[in-house]
Design a binder for these strands. Sequence first.
DNA 1: CGCGTTAGGATTGTCCACAATCCACGCAGC
DNA 2: GCTGCGTGGATTGTGGACAATCCTAACGCG
Lengths: 251, 251
Amino acid sequence: MRRTTTLRATAPAQRASATRPPASRAATAERQIFDTIAEAIAGRRLPPGTKLTEEQLASTFGVSRARIRRVLLLLSQERIVTLKPNRGAYVARPTPQEAREVFAARRLIEDDMAARFAALPPAARAAAARRLTAHVERERAAAAAGDRSASIRLSGEFHQLVGTLAGNAVLAELLEPLIARSSLAIAAYQPPSAEDCAPDEHAAIITALQDGDAALARRLMAEHLEEVEHKLVLDGDAEPAIDLKRVLLGA
Amino acid sequence: MRRTTTLRATAPAQRASATRPPASRAATAERQIFDTIAEAIAGRRLPPGTKLTEEQLASTFGVSRARIRRVLLLLSQERIVTLKPNRGAYVARPTPQEAREVFAARRLIEDDMAARFAALPPAARAAAARRLTAHVERERAAAAAGDRSASIRLSGEFHQLVGTLAGNAVLAELLEPLIARSSLAIAAYQPPSAEDCAPDEHAAIITALQDGDAALARRLMAEHLEEVEHKLVLDGDAEPAIDLKRVLLGA
DNA sequence: CGCGTTAGGATTGTCCACAATCCACGCAGC
DNA sequence: GCTGCGTGGATTGTGGACAATCCTAACGCG
């Protein structure tokens, strides 16, 4: 037997809000599997291109293949996983173009969210800022402990949290897969030398949000996202197959 | 046998781009079913709350229940359909809050798209504007023919087309379910007296886009969306169940 | 007469076995 | 030695059967 891909069952943070206490047992189990895989991908323990065999996942989580199948379908809907017919599921590899577009979409949405957050009534704003501050503390702790995977996850969750607290749930839902796709783009295109997203920038954003300084918050958020994007190497080396075709057509 | 819900098999416009000519036969069949149902919902032939029985859908489309099941899962991901565990699938009924948030998200995204479109290089912009104009012609024809369902569908497709032509595919993907959800909100909250989206407003937007007048295009687009939203009656009458509870608590 | 209870029927959820598809390897032919 | 073509093994896709769940309605009891 070949060495199976490691998928440690770290219980990830609950996704969205758990409305119903009991809910459906099956549905929650499925969500846990979803979150575990999504988190492993976002945390870059499963790099782009990794094959996700149904059987392996089924035995890993101790469930039937049918359930894995549904989870993979859901993951493919978020563009985190690519489903090739009769070939199986693979961790998605965004194209440079797609990566740029994802970041553009994030800038648009998160700019609006920053403005929205800053416009919150003072009391709610203060409470929300406290939650953000507590979150950044956890980011700092993970960074200090050298836990790279946790750092990455928490950094994404920071942005998600800003969106959730900003008060438009629909926009926050749209943001969620974009953050995951960003992480995928980073995994694919960030040179190993570059540092990840520092908690300090997040802290600066919080200060602006807390003060209700919408203009500053938006500027900092935009700069923060641009900085992350600019660390990526998105030019050059297109797909080898395409290159080949061009060579043949050009020759 | 009871009268089955009418789901005429009008072949809807191809969704996104059909990259591969053969592709997977099953996948395309599934997409067709998806599109047919989605279009029936968006066209308000299936109003919010309608029960979507797996068996009925399966026999209607002549496929197995398993495939219907996948389609319903996908539809529920787009928030067009609500999946209640052990209860089945229902056409979603957005809350007033959700409806407002959907329109807010649309304003944000479509404002950006209008700006993007207006900033296109002149040649591409002219070509794109021609496609929009051709589309509005079809809207006019449907309106003149009194085909309400087609009018609604084409009106949604206009916005989708602006997004597609504006050049950010990721944003255009995000917009798609938002348009469907808008249609659902309209079905739920627009009084029967109100008129639908008129093609003339679309034509005015096209002119501004064509001229590269970003400021005007953005303003017209924003006004257009606001007008649609303001026709809805989103205040008052919360869920009856909630009302009951409040009465009991208050009494 | 109203409420709680309990079968009945229908619908959804799950699993399992089989069919279809595809890649990798090996082999003949040039 | 390289190219092209079958064959084997593994993996995915599909259908059908069965189990679990829930609503409806009738029934009996207080």
